[in-house]
Amino acid sequence: MNIFRLAGDMTHLASVLVLLLKIHTIKSCAGVSLKTQELYAIVFATRYLDILTSFVSIYNTLMKLIFLGSSFSIVWYMKYHKTVRRTYDRDQDTFRHWFLMLPCLLLALLIHEKFTFFEVLWTFSLYLEAVAILPQLVLLQRTRNIDNLTGQYIFLLGGYRGFYILNWIYRYFTEPHYVHWITWIAGLVQTLLYADFFYYYFLSWKNNKKLQLPA
């Protein structure tokens, strides 16, 4: 565990906490894409299938449980909680997210490190995570009304991706045989998707204006 990996995990954790805070305390999910949250729930469910069979550390298992529990509870809140679900921007959040799953599955079947059940699903989760933010970014553009918590949530998620790239670079130079091309490329694609958001986030921050994305 290096400092970049830890910083990445902590910003990821913080992003989830910010979102839960918004949903749990303010009882609002305005501006949050249910499509993206459903994709994240599938990402974690397929990636952490090995939670019972592969033990790395108590830290890893605990974090897996937190990400699984939080992603499914966020989906539950947005779909079924009587107050929260009324704040969901249903009409704006129209990205056809299920269509992202088939190409990701096909790609995982074609390009993987090892052709086993767990490994293909792990790879599928990497590809799906790379594009899972798309419905959220589309919703942001459409609503044009981005509150601070939603902006911070996406900012922290992007930060998590950035720190993971630094972690991979660090590990590549410090650990022999540490080469994971698929993880790196999927992670890089994912981070590039945030790059656009970051650009407008900093622009609005610099001009001291409310975050607004171009149509």
Partner: peptide
């Protein structure tokens, strides 16, 4: 063997 790759990241 059918052993899985070691995934130590989240």
């Amino acid at each position: 063997s059918e052993s899985e790759l070691e995934h130590d990241e989240l």
